[in-house]
Design a binder for these strands. Structure first.
Lengths: 130, 130
DNA sequence: AAGATAATGATATCTCATTATCATCTACAG
DNA sequence: CTGTAGATGATAATGAGATATCATTATCTT
């Protein structure tokens, strides 16, 4: 039962490229958006590595997942102030929106325990609305 | 180019059972919940028929879809007053919650066009919290 | 520099929810 | 009552996202 000796993550070009992709944008990114963004710096990057790295970065809390109804999960850098999201129906991108209505708790029915909430706005982003 | 003669939907036991399942609960139902609920009245009912009927009832606007992140779509009877949803992480059921914060529009960034919004609360329903 | 081993990438595979197929059944107009 | 076209159900097929496989490559300690 000798416990696992303690693995140590390595610093690789693909992990750097993936982190850079997040650092370079204020939007939550889908795995494929991460792939495209990181491939700009590292052409050979594969999908499997993206998924593996997203999982890893999420487990170590460098990323958090953003779930949008009917869409694959997005990821964004953890630790940002509380905010919500806007999903553009034209280009499919997800944007951050600041702020949050104060009275969310009051919506909760009696007896229910509120742990979390998500607000998703739908419409057209500035670029697509033009 | 004689246009399709005009099909007329038939009144079948399975369609009645599916509509009854919705009439019998205030919650949005997933296809499998519909299947189970309707099978209580009609044991032989199959999945394919549920999906076909949900699609049909949605197209004729008797139902609307409710999308919850990471979950299969739910359906609820159309025409209800504006409301949102609570997703119980313990039992997986989705519940309606009344009301809506007033200032949603103010969250929208300048230049963005808001068409719609969804609020999902996460936590434990009254039954599971006990 | 060299070895041990973690990481990668191409691709096969899995997991689901949903849809198509098709022989059989049934609602309903005539 | 009858015929027929719509409806059903068992099951195969599909599709998309995510994961597993495994030979090869690259990191990092010594």
């Amino acid at each position: 039962m000798t416990d696992s000796p303690a693995p140590r993550p390595r610093d690789t070009a693909q992990r750097r490229a993936i982190r850079a992709a997040f650092a370079g944008t204020p939007r939550p990114l889908s795995p494929l958006e991460v792939l495209e963004g990181a491939q700009a710096n590292l052409p050979g990057l594969g999908v499997a590595t993206v998924y593996r790295t997203l999982k890893m970065l999420t487990e170590e809390r460098w990323l958090v997942t953003v779930e949008i109804p009917g869409e694959p999960a997005r990821y964004e850098i953890a630790g940002k102030p509380h905010h919500h999201h806007f999903h553009c129906r034209a280009c499919g991108q997800v944007f951050e929106v600041e702020g949050c209505p104060r009275n969310i708790q009051t919506l909760t029915p009696t007896g229910f325990e509120l742990e979390d909430h998500e607000i998703v706005l739908y419409g057209r982003c500035a670029a697509c609305a033009a």
